[in-house]
Structures are given as structure tokens and as C-alpha cells.
């Protein structure tokens, strides 16, 4: 919309207040991460990079970053493969049952994660998955599926089904059609889904608290423990890194969408 009337002073003020309300708690960690104090606080005598230094030299923090990254990558892979296949399958069959199935796949998004975590805790115990890497990957992967199903379904809804017919008509098998026609067309949707699934795993805490016991310490888990034990400003540094990573992934997603729409 261009050329319309601008908003009035009241609407403008309200909008900016909302923005500040949303952004301020996130940005407050940035000055905190540069504090020269030994505890979580704003800088007093000057800015310092000591907590950044502490982060990159601290084995427990680096191990948490490594574990989080590993879990996020593997669970994203799981979510992308399962979610993409589910979305393509539902799209190809396209009847009432698949509509229900697609709605069912969104459940992990709708149900509070603490409910989900309690359920996982119960039956992961029986499967001996508590406190294992595999357990966390499965939990994050499965709860990441909805993001992929949503973005891939959206990409497929703008896919011209005649392209598939054309490919089949020219002699392409189903797998050739999938590899050369369908997947390249929906790749931006898959990438978006992967980014969201990654972010989901990267900052998920509730399920990890329930099922990971002491052996798996992801980054959010480490921050959580840090808050409870000692208010180490390194947490602010980690928070800044999380924000930077998440923001750059979102920007990447935006860029991919722009390219797809072009």
C-alpha cells in the first residue's frame, strides 16, 4: 500500500510501544553481555569482552553448543525428511483422510510442550530413551515435523499439477518426477521448514528438561542451569549468540522466499 494516508499520532505511538515491548527484553541481553562485572548486570565502569572470552575457552559451554548444534542438525534432518514425505503424500492423495492427517501432524504445535514432555517422559522411560542423544533427537525431530509440513504444503499448493502430468507423459518415472520436477519446485518451502525445525530444536528447553537427565546438556539447558546456580554473565553472551543465529536464519528464510516469489 503506497500513497494512502499515514497513521495518526495515537496509532503511531501505540505501534512503537508494541515494538519496544516486544524487542526490549531481547535487546537488554546485548549490553549485559558486555558487562565488566562478575554477575549478571549492566556494565558499570566500562565494556568488556571477558565473558565472550570465557565462553570460547569454557569446555562446558562449548560442549553445550556442540551438543545443541548436533541435536538440531540431526533432528532437522529427521523433521525435513518425514515432513516433506508426509506433505507430498497428502498432496498427491488429496482426500478427506489426508486433510485429517495433515491436521494431526500439526498437533505438536498446538499441544503445550509441557504436556508433550510429560507424555514423552512416560514412554521414553519404557523404551530406555531417557537421557540419550537419540531420545532428544527423536523428540525434537518429531515436534519439528509440523513446521516442515506447513511450509512444504504451502509450496505444493502453488505447484502446478500439470507439471507432474507433463513429466509423467514424457516418460518420467515417479522417482524421476520427484527428483527433477517436484523437489526443485518446492525446495524453498523445504528450506523454510528446515530453518524453522532447526530453530525449534535449537531453543527448545521444556522437553530437554524432562527427558535429557544430566547426560545431555543443550545450550538452553545450560542457560537454565546457570540462572539457577550462579548468575554468570556468560549466559548473556550465549543469549546474544542465539539471537544472532536465529535472526540470521530468519533473514535467510526471507531471502529464500523472495527468490522463490521472483
Amino acid at each position: 500500500m503506497t500513497g494512502g494516508y499515514g497513521p495518526g499520532p495515537f496509532a503511531r505511538t501505540l505501534a512503537w510501544m508494541a515494538v519496544i515491548y516486544l524487542v526490549l527484553p531481547i535487546t537488554i541481553v546485548i549490553p549485559v553481555s558486555f558487562t565488566d562485572q562478575r554477575f549478571l548486570s549492566l556494565p558499570r565502569d566500562g565494556l568488556s569482552l571477558r565473558h565472550y572470552e570465557n565462553l570460547i575457552t569454557s569446555a562446558p559451554w562449548l560442549s553445550a553448543i556442540g551438543q545443541s548444534a548436533m541435536i538440531a542438525v540431526v533432528s532437522t534432518l529427521l523433521a525435513v525428511i518425514a515432513g516433506t514425505l508426509c506433505a507430498i503424500g497428502c498432496w498427491r492423495i488429496g482426500n478427506r483422510t489426508t486433510e485429517w492427517l495433515r491436521a494431526l501432524m500439526l498437533l505438536p504445535l498446538i499441544i503445550p510442550s509441557i504436556v508433550y514432555a510429560v507424555g514423552l517422559y512416560r514412554y521414553f522411560g519404557a523404551l530406555d530413551l531417557l537421557g540419550t542423544f537419540l531420545g532428544v533427537v527423536l523428540a525434537h525431530g518429531v515436534t519439528g515435523i509440523p513446521y516442515v509440513v506447513i511450509t512444504v504444503s504451502a509450496a505444493l499448493s502453488s505447484f502446478d499439477p500439470r507439471l507432474e502430468q507433463a513429466a509423467r507423459g514424457m516418460g518420467a518415472s515417479l522417482s524421476q518426477t520427484l527428483r527433477w520436477v517436484i523437489l526443485p519446485r518446492i525446495a524453498p518451502g523445504i528450506a523454510s521448514g528446515a530453518i524453522f525445525a532447526f530453530i525449534h530444536s535449537w531453543d527448545e528447553l521444556v522437553m530437554v528438561l524432562f527427558i535429557a537427565s544430566r547426560s545431555i546438556v543443550t545450550l538452553p539447558r545450560k542457560i537454565w542451569d546457570g540462572i539457577n546456580e550462579n548468575a554468570d554473565p556468560t549466559m548473556a553472551v550465549v543469549a546474544v549468540l542465539l539471537i544472532v543465529l536465529t535472526l540470521s536464519l530468519l533473514l535467510l528464510d526471507g531471502a529464500l522466499r523472495k527468490r522463490r516469489d521472483a
Partner: peptide, 30 residues
């Protein structure tokens, strides 16, 4: 895919992510 018929679709159904040459290469690659 077993009939070996060429078809021109309504609205053409050209592959938008491929060049003209790649579109033509598709049935040959298959």
C-alpha cells in the same frame, strides 16, 4: 510414462525452473 506420446498441455506446463534447452532435454534425460 510407458506410452511414448508427446503432449502439449493447456497452459503448456513448461518447467519454470529449467531453461528452454533443459525443458527439451527432460524427456531425453528420462
Amino acid at each position: 510414462e510407458k506410452r511414448d506420446f508427446g503432449m502439449v498441455f493447456q497452459g503448456y506446463a513448461l518447467f519454470p525452473h529449467m531453461t528452454v534447452a533443459e525443458n527439451l532435454a527432460f524427456p531425453l534425460r528420462v
